[in-house]
Simulated assay, not measured.
Amino acid sequence: MRIIFMGTPDFSVPVLHALVEAGHQVVAVYSQPPRRAGRGKALTPTPVARAAEALGIEVRTPVSLRDAESQAAFAALDADIAVVAAYGLILPRAVLDAPRLGCLNVHASLLPRWRGAAPIQRAILAGDAETGVCIMQMEAGLDTGPVRLEARTGIAGKTAGVLTDELSAMGARLMVTVLGDMAAHPPLPQPEDGVTYAAKIDKAETRIDWSQSAEQVERQVRAFNPVPGAWFEVAGERIKVLACLTRHPSESWDLPGAGEAAAARDPSFRWGDGMVIDTALTIACGSGEIRPTLLQRAGRGVVTAEELLRGFPIPAGTQV
C-alpha cells in the first residue's frame, strides 16, 4: 500500500520500521516539529523524524493540519491509508477522509478503556490487571472509532517504560497483520460501557503523595518511570524514585536496617505520612511503607538507596 505514517515519540518508531519491512511504500512521514532540548537548547528532531530520515523518507512537520494548504498537501500524496501512532496532533475531517481507506491508529489501551493522551500511565495508576493495543479505524471523536484488532498483556510489576516498549512492538505486529488482510479484520464498534479517559499527566501528579497507601505510591513510581519520574524533596532537592518495595503493617521487611522500623509495626504507634523511619530510607505512607531501591538526584545517575545514603544522608525522622 501507499502509506502516510504519522507519529512522534519512540513508541512510534517500531511501527514505522514494521511497515517498511513488510514491503509497504511509506510515501511521507508526518511528525511534530523539532523542539529545543539538551543543555544547548538546540532544535532536536523527534525520534520518528530521525528514523524516517535514516530510511530516506520525506518528513513533514506542520504545526497544524487545520489550514487548507496543509490539507491539500496531505491529500496530494494520494495515499491508500494513513497509519497513526502517537502523532500528537488532532486530525481534521479533511485529513481523516483523504486516504482511500481512511486512517488507522495504534492505540495503547483496551478501548474503550483509557481513551486519550496517557493510557499507559493511567492504566498503571489505576491498578489495572491488564492492558493492550488496539488497531482502531479513526473517526472525528477522541479514540471513539471501531476496532479492527487487539492484543492484551498483563501489567503486574511493569513500569511505563517497559510497557511502552512492549505495546509498541505489539502494535507494530498488529498493524502489519491488519494491513495484510483488511477484509479479515473488519472494524467492530467499541462497547458503550466501560469508557474512561486518560488525561494528560500533570506535573503536580508526579510528586509522591505520602497520604496514599504504599501500594498506590508504588504504582505512582512505576507509572512515571522512566519519565518524568515520581519524586520527593529533601533539603530543597528533588529526588526521583525509580523503583521501590512495599510493606503493609502486617508484614516485615526482613532486610538490613529494618530493625529500626519496629515501632512502625506496633499497632499503637503511628509515624507521620512521608516520614523516614529507619536508616535504610523506609518511608511511612498513609497505610504501609515503601523502601526506595533505585533513586536519582537532579543531574546525577541512577543509584541504589545504599549508594545515595552514603553521600546524601537522610536520617530517620526526616519528613520528605
Results as ranks from 00 to 15, higher is better:
residue 199 A to N: 13
residue 186 P to A: 06
residue 45 P to L: 00
residue 285 C to D: 07
residue 259 G to H: 12
residue 78 D to V: 07
residue 45 P to E: 01
residue 28 A to F: 00
residue 8 T to D: 07
residue 59 V to P: 06
residue 66 R to W: 08
residue 1 M to V: 14
residue 39 R to W: 04
residue 235 A to G: 10
residue 218 E to T: 14
residue 257 G to K: 03
residue 56 G to S: 08
residue 302 V to F: 06
residue 229 G to I: 09
residue 132 G to Y: 00
residue 184 A to K: 11
residue 130 E to M: 03
residue 288 G to C: 00
residue 212 Q to G: 02
residue 282 T to S: 08
residue 5 F to W: 08
residue 248 H to F: 15
residue 65 L to R: 05
residue 91 L to N: 01
residue 287 S to V: 14
residue 269 F to E: 13
residue 193 D to M: 11
residue 41 K to A: 14
residue 276 V to A: 04
residue 251 E to Y: 09
residue 89 L to M: 11
residue 16 L to P: 01
residue 275 M to H: 12
residue 56 G to H: 07
residue 270 R to D: 14
residue 193 D to R: 12
residue 39 R to Y: 01
residue 43 L to K: 13
residue 183 A to V: 12
residue 290 I to Q: 04
residue 278 D to M: 00
residue 232 F to Q: 02
residue 267 P to L: 08
residue 200 K to C: 02
residue 244 C to L: 08
residue 308 L to P: 09
residue 178 V to C: 07
residue 29 V to R: 00
residue 14 P to H: 03
residue 187 P to W: 01
residue 1 M to Y: 13
residue 209 D to N: 10
residue 23 G to C: 09
residue 85 A to P: 09
residue 159 T to L: 04
residue 213 S to W: 05
residue 269 F to D: 13
residue 309 L to T: 10
residue 110 L to C: 00
residue 275 M to V: 15
residue 251 E to P: 02
residue 68 A to F: 02
residue 143 D to S: 04
residue 150 E to H: 15
residue 216 Q to D: 13
residue 108 A to Q: 11
residue 77 L to C: 05
residue 249 P to L: 03
residue 154 G to D: 13
residue 303 V to L: 08
residue 294 L to D: 12
residue 275 M to P: 07
residue 207 R to A: 13
residue 277 I to S: 04
residue 273 D to L: 06
residue 71 Q to D: 03
residue 171 G to D: 00
residue 98 A to K: 00
residue 159 T to V: 10
residue 24 H to E: 06
residue 77 L to T: 00
residue 51 A to C: 03
residue 22 A to T: 07
residue 189 P to I: 09
residue 261 A to V: 06
residue 45 P to A: 01
residue 182 M to N: 07
residue 83 V to G: 02
residue 301 G to R: 12
residue 225 N to R: 11
residue 79 A to P: 00
residue 269 F to P: 12
residue 231 W to I: 01
residue 66 R to K: 14
residue 215 E to Q: 14
residue 197 Y to C: 09
residue 186 P to Q: 10
residue 144 T to M: 12
residue 222 R to A: 07
residue 35 R to K: 15
residue 208 I to S: 09
residue 108 A to K: 01
residue 101 L to S: 10
residue 254 D to H: 15
residue 188 L to S: 14
residue 261 A to H: 05
residue 108 A to M: 02
residue 283 I to A: 00
residue 189 P to E: 06
residue 227 V to Q: 15
residue 204 A to H: 12
residue 140 A to E: 15
residue 110 L to Y: 09
residue 117 A to R: 05
residue 10 D to R: 13
residue 19 L to M: 06
residue 227 V to M: 15
residue 289 E to W: 13
residue 264 A to T: 14
residue 294 L to H: 13
residue 296 Q to G: 07
residue 71 Q to T: 06
residue 219 R to G: 05
residue 248 H to K: 14
residue 317 G to E: 09
residue 234 V to A: 10
residue 118 A to S: 10
residue 260 E to L: 15
residue 160 A to G: 01
residue 225 N to E: 08
residue 87 Y to D: 01
residue 217 V to Q: 03
residue 134 C to I: 11
